[in-house]
Design a protein around this nucleic acid. Structure first.
Lengths: 238, 238
DNA sequence: CAGATGCTTCGGCCAAGGCCGAAGCAATTC
DNA sequence: GAATTGCTTCGGCCTTGGCCGAAGCATCTG
C-alpha cells in the first residue's frame, strides 16, 4: 500500500501551473514544440525546458526530434485519462458533490444510483443472482440468462417495457462498497418493484433509502437475503 | 481553455506526499478519523489537520462529525476515479507507454482499442450507424435495432457467436477524438470483419492500423464512409 | 565560415508552503 | 466540575523548488 507516494510524485508534477498548462494544451493529442509550450505556459524558455525535462523523465510526455525543434505530446492515452479525471474533479469541484454523503450509514446500506438500487443491499442481490446463475457479469457488461428471465418473471419483476432503448443489464461499480451492483433495465425494474411493494422508502430528500419491515421479508423471501443491516454508528475501518 | 490552472490546483493538492497517503488510504471508500489519517500519512496531528482542511475545502473529502471524532471519506466517486487515473500512470510510469505514439497520426486514424476498432474511422462508422438508426446509443449503453440487425447481417457481420457472455453493444469514449465509438460484441465483430476482409492491417507491433485500398472501398461500400485520411507527417497544431 | 534560430545548462535569487510544539476549543467521561 | 480525549489554531523555522538572465551547444541557412 505504498501507492500514495507514487501518486504524489505524478500529481506534484501536474500540480505546477506552468506544467499543467503545458499538459492541458496537449490534451487533444496534438504535438507542440518546446517554445510553443513555453509560450502557452507563460514562462521563459529556460524554465519551460526544465519543466519539459521533468515531464518527459516521468513518462508523461514523449519527445520527437525534428531538425532543431522538439515536439512534445502526451506519452499515452493513460495520461490523457488521468488529466480528464483531474479536470472533472477540478471543474465542478466543491459545489456538485457536497452533501453527497449526508445520511451516512443509511446511504451505504441502500440508496438510489440514478434509477436503480445501490448500496449493500444491491450488492447482495447481485451476488445472489449471479450465484443462482440468473445473470452473468463481466467487466464490460452483463446478461440475463434463460433461468434468470424465468426467475424474474416468477417473482413478478417486469422487464418487458424496459428492454427497448436501454442496455438490458449492466454492472455498475458501487462506490461505497467497491463491488458491482445491477444497473440498466434490470436494475431499474428491480428498484421500481421494490418501491411498488413498499420494500423501501426514501429518506428525507436524500438518495438514501430505508428498508421497511415488509422489505426485510420481501428481500429475504424473494432473493434469500437477510438485510443484515445494523442501523448503528459508522464503523471505523481497522 | 484555462482548464490548466484548475487542474494544477487539484493536482498540487494531491501532490503532497502526506495528502496523497491520506487519499490513498481512503480509496477503498472507507472512512477514517483525523488521527488515523495523521498516522497513515506520517505527520503530526496539527499538520494533518491543516492538510485535511485543504482537502475538504477543495471538495475532495467530505466530513462527518461524530461525537468528538471527525470521519473523512472521499467526497465522491469522481475523486476515486481521478486517483485511480493517477495511480495507473504512476504505476507503470515511464516504462510501459514509451513509444506509444510512434506512428503518430496513423494511430489517430485507426487503431485497436482492446478487441475493437478505434480512431477516426471507428467514430465515422458509429456515426453512420446511428444516423441510419441501426444502433441507439445513450450514456450507459447501446442497443442494436431491428433494422441494425438486418443491416449487419446483410453486410456479413456475424453477431451470433458473440452475444453470449458479453454486453452486446457499448459506446467507448475515443481518447484521441473525444467521441464515442463502438465497443462490446458489435465492436469486436466489426474489427474481426475488417481483418477478415483485409480492410485493415497492423502497423509494425503497435496498436495502429493501416487502411488498405481494399479497406477504403470496403468501408465506403458498406458504411458510406470515405476514410479521408491523409498519411502525411505529424502535423504540428497551430 | 558566419549568422540565425531553437533549446539546454548554470548560478543565484526568492517566495511558497510543509513541519512541529505549545496552547486553545470542544465533546465525553467520571 | 475536573480530567481526558480528539482536533484545530498560532507562531516561527527551514527546505523545496520555481524563476530568470547569461552563456553554451546544436542545427539549419546563406
Amino acid at each position: 500500500m505504498d501507492i500514495g507516494p507514487k501518486i504524489a510524485q505524478v500529481a506534484a508534477l501536474v500540480g505546477d501551473p506552468a506544467r499543467a498548462n503545458m499538459l492541458a494544451s496537449l490534451m487533444d493529442g496534438g504535438a507542440l514544440t518546446a517554445s510553443e509550450l513555453a509560450y502557452v505556459s507563460g514562462v521563459s524558455p529556460p524554465t519551460a525546458s526544465g519543466h519539459l525535462a521533468k515531464l518527459s523523465d516521468a513518462g508523461l510526455l514523449s519527445l520527437e526530434k525534428q531538425g532543431r525543434r522538439r515536439y512534445f505530446r502526451l506519452a499515452s492515452p493513460l495520461v490523457g485519462h488521468m488529466l480528464e479525471g483531474l479536470a472533472v474533479v477540478a471543474q465542478d469541484g466543491p459545489a456538485r458533490h457536497r452533501n453527497h454523503w449526508r445520511g451516512g450509514e443509511a446511504l451505504r446500506n441502500a440508496r438510489t444510483c440514478y434509477d436503480h438500487l445501490a448500496g449493500r443491499i444491491a450488492i447482495a442481490i447481485a451476488d445472489r443472482l449471479v450465484e443462482r446463475s440468473c445473470i452473468v457479469l463481466d467487466e464490460d457488461g452483463g446478461e440475463v440468462t434463460k433461468a434468470g428471465h424465468a426467475f424474474l418473471e416468477r417473482v413478478g419483476i417486469d422487464l418487458r417495457g424496459a428492454s427497448k432503448r436501454r442496455v438490458f443489464c449492466r454492472p455498475c461499480l458501487d462506490w461505497s462498497e467497491r463491488r458491482p451492483h445491477l444497473a440498466g433495465a434490470v436494475g431499474a425494474s428491480l428498484l421500481r418493484h421494490a418501491f411498488d411493494r413498499g420494500w423501501v422508502e426514501r429518506i428525507r430528500d436524500s438518495r438514501a433509502l430505508s428498508i421497511t419491515s415488509a422489505g426485510k421479508e420481501g428481500f429475504a423471501a424473494t432473493f434469500g437475503i437477510k438485510p443484515a443491516i445494523e442501523e448503528g454508528v459508522v464503523a471505523p475501518k481497522a
